[in-house]
Amino acid sequence: MPRKVTLFVPCYVDQLLPEVAADTVRVLRRIGCEVEFPENQTCCGQPAFNTGYWNDARPCAERFVRVFGGAEVVVCPSGSCTTMVRTFYPELLSSSPLRDDAIELGRHTFELSEFLVKIAGVTELGATFPHTVTYHASCHGLRELKLRDEPLELLRKVKGLKLLELSRSEECCGFGGTFATKFADISVAMGNSKAECVAATGAEFVTAIDSSCLLHLEGVLRKRGKAAKTIHLAGILAQEKP
């Protein structure tokens, strides 16, 4: 198992949801990893890339490759931002001098649950979370990184946690980056569909591997006055016995 892990914190998580990153650190330390956080990291470039501004995204991607270049293993509590590095950097940087470095970095960059299950080989993290929880499969993790079972394996090992199945769990929640504001009506309609499925489970919490989905879902759920709360997978895994 890699001892030294470099933490890649999505820019919006850093600024809006610091607890998710702090929980990621706790989880990684608990399994014996030494966590490093390069403080000069900013954004992987995905917002510009997804909106079509590849020329603006490219220098950010190149900068990211330089910042994380020397890392043995990079871990990120987001399937979407991991996808940006692993799946999209090779295409975005196809004619950049840093192309090969980017491809290499992509091979060593992992989403948190992917790292825990596939690389570290740990599913039992000694977490306790005595609540009913349902799991939403975030699109990038599911379809770009092919992470279907890893988060569920981790959740099943959490003490006291009762996992309730979400119907249409693989349907998009409607976040979609700038889509959420450019086409807010559609985004919210999709969020409402998801919220109804969440409500139908009766779960206290809905979890996912991406904070962006959860931020959107939380916004929709609370606007509807629904009871379920959102929590990132790292937040559950970080909970120890009180």
């Binding site: 850093d14 807010a184 931020l215 916004g219």
Partner: peptide
């Protein structure tokens, strides 16, 4: 564009990097 349709985004006093 975000908040009109959703409850407002959280605004913590401190960022992760500062913590």
């Amino acid at each position: 564009a975000w908040n009109r349709y959703r409850s407002p985004v959280p605004l913590p006093a401190e960022s992760f990097r500062s913590r």
